[in-house]
């Protein structure tokens, strides 16, 4: 998931954590990880699978939208 990492470097606001799902079964259960890669942003937006950069950015922006 290079996009997440590169986004971290691009902005002080962004932090990315790659989580090895099988070594953290409790976290994986808590986030209902059924397939990988699964991305969860700010506990608000999630998706599975690789996506283009523009879609990933869209998910990040959606995660910080104020209600």
């Amino acid at each position: 998931m290079r996009l997440a990492q590169h986004m971290s470097v691009a902005s002080d606001r962004v932090r990315s954590t790659v989580i090895e799902a099988t070594e953290f079964p409790e976290l994986s259960r808590a986030y209902r990880v059924l397939g990988v890669p699964k991305v969860v942003i700010n506990e608000r937006v999630e998706f599975e699978g690789a996506v283009p950069e523009a879609d990933f950015l869209g998910a990040v922006l959606k995660a910080v939208e104020t209600a």
Binding site: M1, H6, M7, A10, S16, V18, I19, Y31, P37, N42
Partner: peptide, 26 residues
Amino acid sequence: PALSEATQTALQALAADVEIKVFSTP
């Protein structure tokens, strides 16, 4: 970062912190 100018500009304008979790397997 290897990201487009547009993406970098948008990220630098973020007004809130972003925590991205990526669940993966080997």
